[in-house]
Protein backbone atom coordinates (compact mmCIF):
# COMPACT_ATOMS: atom_id res chain seq x y z
CA UNK A 1 0.00 0.00 0.00
CA UNK A 2 1.50 3.31 -0.97
CA UNK A 3 1.30 6.46 1.09
CA UNK A 4 -0.11 9.85 0.27
CA UNK A 5 3.12 11.56 -0.39
CA UNK A 6 2.36 14.17 -3.02
CA UNK A 7 1.03 17.60 -2.18
CA UNK A 8 -0.72 19.15 -5.12
CA UNK A 9 -2.37 22.45 -5.92
CA UNK A 10 -5.39 22.24 -8.19
CA UNK A 11 -7.02 25.01 -10.19
CA UNK A 12 -10.39 23.55 -11.13
CA UNK A 13 -13.04 25.04 -13.42
CA UNK A 14 -16.34 25.50 -11.57
CA UNK A 15 -19.48 26.36 -13.49
CA UNK A 16 -23.00 25.99 -12.11
CA UNK A 17 -24.67 25.32 -15.47
CA UNK A 18 -24.47 26.13 -19.19
CA UNK A 19 -25.54 29.75 -18.62
CA UNK A 20 -23.20 30.51 -15.74
CA UNK A 21 -19.95 32.27 -16.67
CA UNK A 22 -17.71 29.95 -14.67
CA UNK A 23 -14.42 30.51 -12.84
CA UNK A 24 -11.39 28.69 -11.46
CA UNK A 25 -11.19 27.64 -7.84
CA UNK A 26 -8.03 26.63 -6.01
CA UNK A 27 -7.74 23.49 -3.90
CA UNK A 28 -4.97 21.54 -2.26
CA UNK A 29 -5.04 17.77 -2.19
CA UNK A 30 -2.77 14.95 -1.10
CA UNK A 31 -2.23 12.09 -3.51
CA UNK A 32 -0.13 9.00 -3.97
CA UNK A 33 1.75 8.18 -7.16
CA UNK A 34 -0.23 4.95 -7.72
CA UNK A 35 -3.58 6.73 -7.76
CA UNK A 36 -5.33 7.41 -11.00
CA UNK A 37 -6.12 11.04 -11.77
CA UNK A 38 -9.82 10.39 -11.12
CA UNK A 39 -9.05 8.72 -7.79
CA UNK A 40 -7.24 11.91 -6.86
CA UNK A 41 -10.47 13.73 -7.73
CA UNK A 42 -12.40 11.26 -5.54
CA UNK A 43 -10.15 12.28 -2.66
CA UNK A 44 -10.77 15.96 -3.42
CA UNK A 45 -14.54 15.42 -3.52
CA UNK A 46 -14.60 13.46 -0.26
CA UNK A 47 -12.68 16.36 1.25
CA UNK A 48 -15.14 18.94 -0.14
CA UNK A 49 -18.21 17.00 1.01
CA UNK A 50 -16.76 16.60 4.51
CA UNK A 51 -16.13 20.36 4.60
CA UNK A 52 -19.77 20.94 3.65
CA UNK A 53 -18.92 22.20 0.16
CA UNK A 54 -20.21 21.10 -3.20
CA UNK A 55 -18.12 18.42 -4.88
CA UNK A 56 -16.74 18.93 -8.38
CA UNK A 57 -18.95 17.36 -11.06
CA UNK A 58 -16.99 15.32 -13.58
CA UNK A 59 -17.91 12.52 -15.98
CA UNK A 60 -16.43 9.07 -15.58
CA UNK A 61 -17.63 5.51 -15.68
CA UNK A 62 -15.57 2.46 -16.68
CA UNK A 63 -12.25 3.79 -15.41
CA UNK A 64 -10.38 1.47 -17.73
CA UNK A 65 -10.03 3.71 -20.75
CA UNK A 66 -12.75 2.33 -22.98
CA UNK A 67 -16.16 3.91 -22.27
CA UNK A 68 -15.07 7.39 -23.36
CA UNK A 69 -16.95 9.15 -20.58
CA UNK A 70 -14.08 10.87 -18.77
CA UNK A 71 -13.17 14.20 -20.22
CA UNK A 72 -10.82 16.62 -18.52
CA UNK A 73 -8.43 19.12 -20.01
CA UNK A 74 -5.38 18.84 -17.76
CA UNK A 75 -2.76 21.55 -17.97
CA UNK A 76 -4.14 22.54 -21.35
CA UNK A 77 -4.19 19.06 -22.83
CA UNK A 78 -7.24 16.80 -23.23
CA UNK A 79 -6.70 13.74 -21.00
CA UNK A 80 -3.47 15.23 -19.68
CA UNK A 81 0.22 15.02 -20.43
CA UNK A 82 0.57 11.34 -21.39
CA UNK A 83 0.05 10.25 -24.95
CA UNK A 84 -2.43 7.50 -25.74
CA UNK A 85 -4.34 7.38 -22.45
CA UNK A 86 -7.64 8.66 -21.13
CA UNK A 87 -7.90 10.70 -17.95
CA UNK A 88 -8.96 7.61 -15.98
CA UNK A 89 -5.80 5.78 -17.05
CA UNK A 90 -3.54 8.69 -16.21
CA UNK A 91 -1.73 8.04 -12.94
CA UNK A 92 -0.38 10.54 -10.47
CA UNK A 93 3.15 9.22 -11.03
CA UNK A 94 3.04 11.40 -14.16
CA UNK A 95 3.13 14.44 -11.84
CA UNK A 96 5.52 15.64 -9.16
CA UNK A 97 5.13 16.65 -5.56
CA UNK A 98 4.31 20.35 -5.36
CA UNK A 99 2.86 20.63 -8.87
CA UNK A 100 0.03 22.99 -9.71
CA UNK A 101 -2.47 21.29 -12.02
CA UNK A 102 -5.09 23.18 -14.04
CA UNK A 103 -8.25 21.22 -14.84
CA UNK A 104 -10.92 22.38 -17.30
CA UNK A 105 -13.81 20.86 -19.23
CA UNK A 106 -13.81 20.17 -22.99
CA UNK A 107 -14.41 23.57 -24.56
CA UNK A 108 -16.49 23.69 -27.73
CA UNK A 109 -19.78 25.30 -28.68
CA UNK A 110 -21.05 21.91 -29.74
CA UNK A 111 -20.33 20.51 -26.23
CA UNK A 112 -22.15 22.82 -23.79
CA UNK A 113 -21.07 22.59 -20.15
CA UNK A 114 -23.59 20.86 -17.87
CA UNK A 115 -21.76 21.56 -14.66
CA UNK A 116 -18.09 22.06 -13.77
CA UNK A 117 -16.20 19.50 -15.85
CA UNK A 118 -19.21 17.68 -17.32
CA UNK A 119 -20.21 18.53 -20.86
CA UNK A 120 -23.00 17.43 -23.18
CA UNK A 121 -21.70 15.37 -26.09
CA UNK A 122 -25.05 14.32 -27.61
CA UNK A 123 -23.93 15.95 -30.86
CA UNK A 124 -21.78 12.86 -31.45
CA UNK A 125 -24.81 10.58 -31.08
CA UNK A 126 -26.72 12.68 -33.60
CA UNK A 127 -23.87 12.40 -36.09
CA UNK A 128 -23.93 8.60 -35.78
CA UNK A 129 -27.74 8.63 -36.06
CA UNK A 130 -27.43 10.54 -39.33
CA UNK A 131 -25.57 7.71 -41.05
CA UNK A 132 -22.84 6.06 -38.97
CA UNK A 133 -24.15 2.53 -39.39
CA UNK A 134 -24.81 -0.26 -41.86
CA UNK A 135 -28.52 -0.48 -42.72
CA UNK A 136 -29.12 -4.12 -41.93
CA UNK A 137 -32.08 -5.25 -39.89
CA UNK A 138 -31.69 -8.10 -37.43
CA UNK A 139 -32.14 -11.41 -39.18
CA UNK A 140 -30.97 -10.26 -42.60
CA UNK A 141 -27.43 -11.50 -42.33
CA UNK A 142 -25.71 -14.15 -44.40
CA UNK A 143 -23.18 -16.56 -42.89
CA UNK A 144 -20.35 -14.64 -41.28
CA UNK A 145 -17.69 -16.35 -43.42
CA UNK A 146 -19.60 -15.89 -46.68
CA UNK A 147 -17.71 -12.66 -47.39
CA UNK A 148 -13.96 -12.93 -47.02
CA UNK A 149 -12.21 -9.82 -45.77
CA UNK A 150 -8.42 -9.63 -46.01
CA UNK A 151 -6.76 -9.50 -42.62
CA UNK A 152 -5.07 -6.20 -43.44
CA UNK A 153 -8.42 -4.61 -44.29
CA UNK A 154 -10.07 -5.97 -41.14
CA UNK A 155 -7.15 -4.72 -39.04
CA UNK A 156 -7.30 -1.26 -40.58
CA UNK A 157 -11.06 -1.07 -40.06
CA UNK A 158 -10.59 -2.20 -36.48
CA UNK A 159 -7.96 0.46 -35.84
CA UNK A 160 -10.43 3.17 -36.92
CA UNK A 161 -13.24 1.48 -34.98
CA UNK A 162 -11.38 1.73 -31.68
CA UNK A 163 -12.50 5.38 -31.36
CA UNK A 164 -14.19 5.77 -27.97
CA UNK A 165 -16.16 8.90 -28.85
CA UNK A 166 -14.74 10.89 -25.95
CA UNK A 167 -14.39 14.16 -27.86
CA UNK A 168 -10.74 14.84 -27.02
CA UNK A 169 -10.16 15.52 -30.74
CA UNK A 170 -12.70 18.33 -30.69
CA UNK A 171 -11.30 19.69 -27.49
CA UNK A 172 -7.74 19.69 -28.84
CA UNK A 173 -8.65 21.39 -32.11
CA UNK A 174 -8.39 25.17 -32.33
CA UNK A 175 -11.43 25.05 -34.64
CA UNK A 176 -13.31 22.51 -32.49
CA UNK A 177 -13.53 20.27 -35.53
CA UNK A 178 -14.99 16.77 -35.28
CA UNK A 179 -13.31 15.47 -38.43
CA UNK A 180 -11.26 12.81 -36.62
CA UNK A 181 -14.35 11.37 -34.96
CA UNK A 182 -16.37 11.38 -38.18
CA UNK A 183 -13.40 10.19 -40.23
CA UNK A 184 -12.86 7.22 -37.95
CA UNK A 185 -16.40 5.92 -38.45
CA UNK A 186 -16.44 6.67 -42.17
CA UNK A 187 -13.09 4.90 -42.58
CA UNK A 188 -14.19 1.79 -40.68
CA UNK A 189 -17.40 1.36 -42.61
CA UNK A 190 -16.08 2.30 -46.05
CA UNK A 191 -13.23 -0.21 -45.77
CA UNK A 192 -15.52 -3.14 -45.08
CA UNK A 193 -17.59 -4.66 -47.88
CA UNK A 194 -20.69 -4.57 -45.66
CA UNK A 195 -20.49 -0.79 -45.44
CA UNK A 196 -19.85 0.00 -49.06
CA UNK A 197 -23.41 -0.14 -50.41
CA UNK A 198 -24.36 3.10 -48.67
CA UNK A 199 -20.89 4.67 -48.35
CA UNK A 200 -21.73 7.78 -50.38
CA UNK A 201 -25.02 8.47 -48.67
CA UNK A 202 -23.38 7.93 -45.29
CA UNK A 203 -20.46 10.29 -45.66
CA UNK A 204 -22.57 13.18 -46.96
CA UNK A 205 -25.18 12.76 -44.23
CA UNK A 206 -22.57 12.59 -41.47
CA UNK A 207 -20.67 15.63 -42.72
CA UNK A 208 -23.89 17.61 -43.02
CA UNK A 209 -24.86 16.70 -39.46
CA UNK A 210 -21.37 17.54 -38.22
CA UNK A 211 -21.66 21.00 -39.75
CA UNK A 212 -25.18 21.49 -38.39
CA UNK A 213 -23.95 20.75 -34.86
CA UNK A 214 -21.54 23.67 -35.02
CA UNK A 215 -18.23 21.83 -35.19
CA UNK A 216 -15.52 23.79 -36.98
CA UNK A 217 -13.64 23.03 -40.16
CA UNK A 218 -10.39 21.07 -40.37
CA UNK A 219 -7.20 22.99 -41.08
CA UNK A 220 -4.87 19.98 -40.95
CA UNK A 221 -3.09 20.92 -37.73
CA UNK A 222 -3.16 17.33 -36.45
CA UNK A 223 -3.71 18.17 -32.78
CA UNK A 224 -6.73 15.84 -32.78
CA UNK A 225 -4.73 12.77 -33.63
CA UNK A 226 -1.84 13.76 -31.36
CA UNK A 227 -4.19 14.04 -28.38
CA UNK A 228 -6.43 11.08 -29.24
CA UNK A 229 -6.27 8.57 -26.36
CA UNK A 230 -6.74 5.75 -28.86
CA UNK A 231 -4.24 7.22 -31.33
CA UNK A 232 -6.66 7.24 -34.26
CA UNK A 233 -4.40 8.16 -37.22
CA UNK A 234 -4.78 11.44 -39.06
CA UNK A 235 -5.20 9.42 -42.27
CA UNK A 236 -8.86 8.84 -41.38
CA UNK A 237 -9.44 12.51 -42.19
CA UNK A 238 -7.88 12.01 -45.60
CA UNK A 239 -10.19 9.03 -46.11
CA UNK A 240 -13.14 11.13 -45.01
CA UNK A 241 -12.25 13.84 -47.53
CA UNK A 242 -11.73 11.29 -50.28
CA UNK A 243 -15.03 9.54 -49.57
CA UNK A 244 -16.81 12.90 -49.43
CA UNK A 245 -15.44 14.07 -52.77
CA UNK A 246 -16.24 10.70 -54.35
CA UNK A 247 -19.82 10.97 -53.12
CA UNK A 248 -20.18 14.54 -54.33
CA UNK A 249 -18.87 13.59 -57.77
CA UNK A 250 -21.53 10.90 -57.86
CA UNK A 251 -24.12 13.59 -57.23
CA UNK A 252 -24.97 12.85 -53.58
Amino acid sequence: MSNSNMNLKLKVWRQQNAKDEGHFEDYTVQASPDMSFLEMFDVLNEQLITEGKNPVAFDHDCREGICGMCSMVINGRPHGPKQGVTTCQLHMRSFSDGDTIVVEPWRSNAFPVIRDLSVNRSAFDRIIASGGYVSVNTGNAVDANATLIPKETADEAFEAATCIGCGACVSACKNASAMLFVGAKVTQLSLLPQGQAEASKRVVAMVNQMDAEGFGACTNTGACSAECPKQIPLSVIATLNREYIKAKLKGY
Binding site: A141, V142, A144, N145, L148, K151, A154, L189, Q194
Partner: peptide
Protein backbone atom coordinates in the same frame (compact mmCIF):
# COMPACT_ATOMS: atom_id res chain seq x y z
CA UNK B 1 -24.40 -18.59 -34.60
CA UNK B 2 -26.84 -15.96 -35.87
CA UNK B 3 -25.27 -13.38 -33.56
CA UNK B 4 -21.91 -13.62 -35.30
CA UNK B 5 -23.60 -13.34 -38.72
CA UNK B 6 -25.55 -10.27 -37.60
CA UNK B 7 -22.52 -8.53 -36.11
CA UNK B 8 -20.40 -9.11 -39.21
CA UNK B 9 -23.22 -7.71 -41.35
CA UNK B 10 -23.19 -4.57 -39.20
CA UNK B 11 -19.51 -4.03 -39.89
CA UNK B 12 -18.06 -5.32 -36.62
CA UNK B 13 -14.36 -5.78 -37.41
CA UNK B 14 -13.66 -9.18 -35.85
CA UNK B 15 -10.14 -10.60 -35.99
CA UNK B 16 -9.47 -12.50 -39.21
CA UNK B 17 -6.99 -14.95 -40.69
CA UNK B 18 -4.89 -14.13 -43.74
CA UNK B 19 -7.35 -15.97 -45.97
CA UNK B 20 -10.09 -13.58 -44.90
CA UNK B 21 -12.05 -15.94 -42.66
CA UNK B 22 -12.88 -15.23 -39.04
Amino acid sequence: TSIIDQCVAQGVPFAREYGGTL
